[in-house]
Computed example of a mutant assay.
Amino acid sequence: MTERREGPAGELVDVVDEQDRVVGRATRSEAYARRLRHRCAFVLARDPQRRIFVHRRTTTKLIFPGRYDMFVGGVLQAGETYDAAALREAEEELGVSGLPAPTPLFRFCYDTPEHSWWSGVYEVTCALPVRPQAEEVAWHAFLPEAEVARRLDEWDWVPDGLEAYRRLLARGR
C-alpha cells in the first residue's frame, strides 16, 4: 500500500483493470505519472431551465489546466463508490450542499496514450445558487445546450469531458 501524501496529488485512488475491477492502490500523482487506470465521476449539472453548467478550469489544476468543461466531477478516492463520488464532487465544485443524488447515465473507459480511467457519467439538476471553488473554477455560467453546441469547436475543452458529452449526445440525452 502506498503512503498517503497531503493534497489532491497524494490522495489514494483505486487502480482498476480493463473490466473496472480493483487491482491495487496508488496516489493520484502516481496514477497519472505511471498511467495507472483509475476511476472518475463526471456530472452534467443543469439548472431548472435545463441549461448546462460550463466552466473553465483554473491553470493550477493537475490535469487539463485552463480548459473548458461541461462536467463537474473528479477522481474517486480509494474505496469510494461512483455514486458517492458524483455527489461529493458535484457539491464541492458547484459550492453547494443538499443536491439530489445525481442520476447515473453510463460508464466508459477513457483510454489514451497519456491517460486511462473508467468514467461514471451522471446528471443532476441544481436549483441552488452556485458558488464554485476558486481553486477549481476560473469562470462559469449556465449555458443553453445550443450555446454549448456552438462552442464545441471553438473552445479548448477537456478531452475526457468532450468524449463523455459526445457519447451522451449519441444516446439522445
Score class of each variant (00 low, 15 high):
residue 40 C to A: 08
residue 41 A to T: 04
residue 42 F to A: 14
residue 44 L to Y: 01
residue 46 R to A: 01
residue 46 R to I: 02
residue 47 D to I: 01
residue 48 P to G: 10
residue 53 F to H: 00
residue 53 F to Q: 01
residue 54 V to F: 04
residue 54 V to W: 01
residue 54 V to L: 00
residue 54 V to M: 05
residue 55 H to N: 04
residue 55 H to P: 00
residue 56 R to L: 02
residue 56 R to A: 03
residue 56 R to E: 00
residue 57 R to A: 11
residue 58 T to Y: 05
residue 58 T to A: 05
residue 60 T to R: 13
residue 63 I to P: 02
residue 63 I to C: 03
residue 64 F to Y: 15
residue 64 F to Q: 12
residue 66 G to T: 02
residue 67 R to G: 08
residue 67 R to F: 07
residue 70 M to R: 04
residue 70 M to F: 02
residue 72 V to Q: 08
residue 74 G to I: 07
residue 74 G to T: 04
residue 74 G to N: 08
residue 75 V to I: 01
residue 75 V to K: 04
residue 76 L to S: 09
residue 77 Q to V: 10
residue 77 Q to F: 10
residue 78 A to F: 08
residue 78 A to Q: 14
residue 81 T to I: 13
residue 82 Y to A: 14
residue 82 Y to W: 15
residue 83 D to S: 13
residue 83 D to T: 10
residue 84 A to H: 14
residue 84 A to L: 13
residue 85 A to Y: 07
residue 86 A to N: 12
residue 86 A to H: 11
residue 86 A to L: 06
residue 86 A to K: 11
residue 87 L to S: 07
residue 88 R to M: 03
residue 89 E to M: 08
residue 89 E to D: 04
residue 91 E to F: 10
residue 91 E to Q: 15
residue 91 E to Y: 05
residue 92 E to D: 05
residue 92 E to F: 10
residue 94 L to Q: 03
residue 96 V to A: 06
residue 96 V to E: 09
residue 97 S to F: 11
residue 101 A to Y: 05
residue 101 A to K: 13
residue 102 P to V: 00
residue 102 P to E: 06
residue 103 T to K: 12
residue 104 P to T: 08
residue 105 L to V: 13
residue 106 F to D: 09
residue 106 F to P: 01
residue 107 R to D: 04
residue 108 F to R: 13
residue 110 Y to H: 15
residue 110 Y to D: 09
residue 110 Y to R: 12
residue 111 D to M: 12
residue 112 T to H: 14
residue 113 P to F: 11
residue 113 P to R: 13
residue 113 P to W: 13
residue 114 E to S: 14
residue 114 E to W: 05
residue 115 H to P: 00
residue 115 H to W: 12
residue 116 S to T: 11
residue 117 W to Q: 03
residue 118 W to L: 10
residue 118 W to N: 10
residue 119 S to E: 13
residue 120 G to R: 14
residue 121 V to T: 10
residue 121 V to P: 03
residue 121 V to Q: 08
residue 121 V to L: 06
residue 124 V to A: 02
residue 125 T to G: 03
residue 125 T to A: 02
residue 125 T to P: 03
residue 127 A to G: 14
residue 130 V to M: 01
residue 130 V to Y: 06
residue 131 R to W: 08
residue 132 P to K: 06
residue 132 P to I: 01
residue 133 Q to S: 08
residue 134 A to F: 09
residue 135 E to M: 06
residue 136 E to M: 09
residue 137 V to I: 12
residue 138 A to H: 02
residue 138 A to Q: 05
residue 139 W to V: 02
residue 141 A to Q: 07
residue 142 F to E: 00
residue 142 F to I: 07
residue 143 L to D: 09
residue 146 A to C: 02
residue 146 A to Q: 12
residue 148 V to S: 00
residue 148 V to C: 08
residue 148 V to A: 02
residue 148 V to Y: 05
residue 149 A to I: 06
residue 149 A to N: 07
residue 151 R to A: 06
residue 152 L to D: 05
residue 154 E to R: 15
residue 155 W to S: 01
residue 155 W to H: 05
residue 156 D to E: 12
residue 157 W to A: 05
residue 158 V to D: 10
residue 158 V to F: 00
residue 158 V to G: 12
residue 160 D to R: 13
residue 163 E to K: 15
residue 163 E to R: 15
residue 164 A to T: 10
residue 167 R to K: 14
residue 167 R to I: 06
residue 169 L to K: 15
residue 169 L to R: 15
residue 169 L to C: 14
residue 169 L to F: 09
residue 170 A to I: 04
residue 170 A to N: 05
residue 170 A to W: 09
residue 170 A to G: 10
residue 172 G to W: 11
